[in-house]
Structures are given as C-alpha cells and as structure tokens.
Amino acid sequence: LLLLTTVLSNNKLSFDDAGALSLGVLYIGFGFHFFLQARAENWMAFVFGLIIVWLTDSFAYIIGRKLGRHKLIPKISPNKTWEGSIGGTAVATIVAIIFAESTHFATHFSLFEIVLATLILSIAGQFGDLIESALKRYFGVKDSGTLLPGHGGILDRFDSMLIVMPIIVLIGLTA
C-alpha cells in the first residue's frame, strides 16, 4: 500500500519515506510485541529486563557525569561517555546478580548465564538508546514526540526496551 501510495501521490510520498515508515513500523511493532511476549511468558524475566535497562541508563548517566572523559559516539550522542557506559553496565551486573540470587529467577540459570545475559542486555539497551538518538539526528528533531515534554518523547522511554525485550525472548530467559 505504501508503494502504491508513492505512485498515486505523484511522489509526494517518496520511496525513501515509504521505506523509513516501514522500518519504523517494524522496529516499534516488533519491539513492543516482544515486550508483551516477555511479560506474558515470564514475569521475572520481564522485570529482570526492566531492571537492567533502568540501572544501566541511570548509572551510565550518573557515572558519565562524574567521571566521563572519553566520548562514546559524539556525532550521535555527544554527552555519552565510555566511562558512563562501562559504569552503567557494571552496576547493572552487580544488581542483576543480587536480583537473581534473591528471587526464584536464579534457580533457572547459572551465575555465569545471568552475568552473560546482563552484559548482552545492558550493551543492547545502550545500542537501543543510540539507535533512537541517531534516528532523531537523522530527522533533525530534538524529541521523538510531545507527550512527555523535556524527556525526549515517549520513544525515549522505551528505546532500550525495544531492543532488550526481543533479546530476552530470543535467548531463552523467559523459559
């Protein structure tokens, strides 16, 4: 239908626009599908993913502000630093171990599997944040919407989870 619209609109909707729209629908649609699937299949795995994302994001910001010297990808996100990225992942890993050991979640996975999954999810969540930053830069906008003024838009609240939740399901943490 989008390709047909490019023809019928005399190219007012370009092929680039149709491609970007299609990719956006897939990115957001699949991300939220797996968000709901992870929640439905295993509540603890879902909460585990939320904790990893929130801790990584929060402590990357805190540690990056205090200790950050080396820019991660300045053209995409000028305030993110390697120190913040590594610090956020380290804090998330420590708390993930405590979470896993203090809940029934640890009975399903070894400590090595919990640490490996945390590292994967923490790094993937940061890539989710960078993807959304790159998307905003590409379209020349500061925020992805106006629903949450001053917070980068609603997509900023879910950008990491749109990448993390599919990984949680695909690597079997919901089993």
Rank of each mutant, 00 (worst) to 15 (best):
L8G: 09
S9P: 05
S9Q: 09
N10W: 04
N10P: 01
L13F: 05
L13V: 15
L13D: 11
S14Q: 13
S14P: 04
S14V: 11
F15R: 12
D17T: 06
A18Q: 04
G19P: 03
G19R: 10
A20M: 15
A20H: 12
L21T: 10
L23R: 12
L26F: 10
L26N: 00
Y27A: 07
Y27L: 12
I28A: 09
G29Q: 08
F30L: 15
G31D: 11
G31C: 10
F34H: 13
F34M: 06
F35A: 05
L36N: 10
Q37I: 14
A38F: 02
A38N: 11
R39H: 14
E41K: 13
N42A: 13
N42C: 06
W43Q: 15
W43V: 15
M44V: 06
A45N: 11
A45R: 07
A45D: 11
F46Q: 01
V47W: 05
V47D: 07
V47T: 13
F48W: 01
F48G: 00
L50A: 03
L50V: 02
I51A: 06
I52S: 01
I52A: 11
W54F: 10
L55W: 00
L55R: 00
T56N: 10
T56G: 07
D57V: 14
F59K: 06
Y61H: 12
I62V: 07
I63N: 01
G64A: 06
G64M: 02
G64Q: 01
R65D: 04
R65M: 13
K66W: 07
K66I: 15
L67T: 14
G68L: 08
R69D: 01
H70Y: 05
L72I: 07
L72N: 02
P74S: 13
K75M: 08
K75F: 13
I76T: 11
I76P: 08
S77I: 15
K80R: 08
K80W: 04
T81F: 03
W82P: 05
W82C: 10
G84S: 14
I86L: 14
I86S: 03
I86N: 02
I86W: 02
G87S: 12
G87C: 04
A90H: 00
A90Q: 01
A92L: 01
T93P: 00
T93F: 00
T93M: 07
I97A: 08
I97T: 11
F99Y: 13
F99Q: 02
A100Q: 12
A100N: 09
S102A: 11
T103I: 13
T103H: 09
T103G: 03
T103Y: 10
H104T: 15
F105Y: 02
T107F: 01
H108P: 00
H108R: 15
F109A: 05
F109L: 08
S110V: 08
S110I: 08
L111I: 15
L111T: 15
E113F: 04
I114P: 00
L116H: 05
L116R: 14
T118D: 02
L119M: 13
L119E: 07
I120Y: 00
S122V: 11
S122Y: 04
S122E: 02
S122C: 04
I123F: 13
A124G: 08
Q126S: 14
G128F: 09
G128W: 02
G128V: 09
L130K: 06
I131Y: 08
E132K: 07
E132I: 09
E132Q: 10
S133H: 04
S133L: 04
S133I: 03
S133C: 04
A134Q: 13
L135N: 09
L135F: 12
R137F: 08
R137A: 11
R137Y: 08
Y138M: 13
